[in-house]
Amino acid sequence: GSEEHCAPNKEPVKYGELVVLGYNGALPNGDRGRRKSRFALYKRPKANGVKPSTVHVISTPQASKAISCKGQHSISYTLSRNQTVVVEYTHDKDTDMFQVGRSTESPIDFVVTDTISGSQNTDEAQITQSTISRFACRIVCDRNEPYTARIFAAGFDSSKNIFLGEKAAKWKNPDGHMDGLTTNGVLVMHPRGGFTEESQPGVWREISVCGDVYTLRETRSAQQRGKLVESETNVLQDGSLIDLCGATLLWRTADGLFHTPTQKHIEALRQEINAARPQCPVGLN
């Protein structure tokens, strides 16, 4: 909009933050580029979101290659050796997309590696076989208020492609659109009763490639999907947890972060306690 041009020094809009649980704010080797323990999502100078447009049903691998090379985002669902459904995605001026995964390729905004519990030194932390997907998930934020953030399984690779091979769980919905799950899945749990001291844990769900909500599979990477949960959506709430199978992320909304205690608050409380000159009942000092 034009209002953005008049105020170049205005704070950029912050959609929220993703925090990797288990590091208390800093990775063991320090933050490096896109690999860090927390990632803030800001409104982009120019929208980079995409939305589904044309669907192609293709019977030869050559044809599906041709479509996926058009420089447009696309999701390919391989149904069999001789049938692939390619869904092309087109630019969406109303959303910003952020991608999370283990890959360090440029489409990934936030590079996440496995969380090793309890290992202090980095020699132990050499992961031989990571279960986090290279292109694990994407978070799509509305560029207009209330800046709703939604999560989808899988991310687009450097060729702007999401490719669900023959073995991946995939299906055609009653309304005709294709959908699928990634190998180890993207699970989400929303806290019940908001993100407060009173919050209760919610139920873990699995999010599909198109953002629908399913009950968990029998095992993490089973071929058979869970049941569609029609009453729930892929909208992230303050305090939602995202399990990428090897690392868990916490989503904080900008509003939620605005109300969290700061270092200043904590310092003030500490000074208040000290000002009361508390005495240790054992050492009497």
Rank of each mutant, 00 (worst) to 15 (best):
G176K: 01
D96N: 00
A169G: 11
V209E: 01
P107E: 12
P45E: 15
R81G: 04
T196Q: 09
R220K: 06
N9V: 06
T196E: 07
S68H: 05
I67G: 08
K14F: 04
V20Q: 14
D94V: 06
R150S: 14
S2A: 06
H56M: 02
D96Q: 09
I108Q: 00
I151G: 05
W171Y: 13
D157M: 07
T122A: 14
Q126P: 01
G202E: 01
D255A: 15
H190L: 02
V86G: 12
P45Y: 00
R38Y: 08
M189W: 00
I266N: 14
E267Y: 10
F39I: 03
G22T: 05
P278C: 12
Q271I: 06
D243Q: 04
K10M: 08
L236Y: 09
E124M: 07
V13T: 11
H190T: 11
E272F: 11
H56V: 10
V57Q: 05
P45I: 15
G155D: 03
T183E: 10
S68D: 03
P107N: 12
F110R: 01
T84P: 07
A40H: 08
K227N: 10
D31C: 04
D212K: 06
Q223G: 13
F156R: 05
E218K: 13
N161A: 06
S208C: 12
R38C: 09
G193K: 11
K93A: 14
R34V: 04
E145Q: 15
G165K: 00
K65N: 14
K46G: 11
K10E: 09
G101E: 02
Y15F: 09
S37C: 15
A47D: 09
G202W: 10
A276E: 08
L269A: 13
N234S: 13
E88F: 01
A247P: 03
F135D: 00
G202H: 10
S76C: 12
H91G: 01
V209Q: 04
E267H: 10
S80W: 04
T262Y: 04
P201I: 11
E198G: 10
I273G: 05
E230N: 02
S64Y: 04
Q271K: 12
W251N: 05
K46F: 14
R252K: 13
Q99W: 02
A153T: 05
Q223F: 11
I266K: 07
G176D: 06
R270V: 15
A154P: 02
P191H: 12
K160A: 12
E88L: 09
L187G: 01
Q129E: 14
Y77S: 06
E166A: 06
V112Q: 00
P146M: 09
R81E: 14
Q120K: 12
R44T: 10
V203N: 09
E198R: 13
V282W: 12
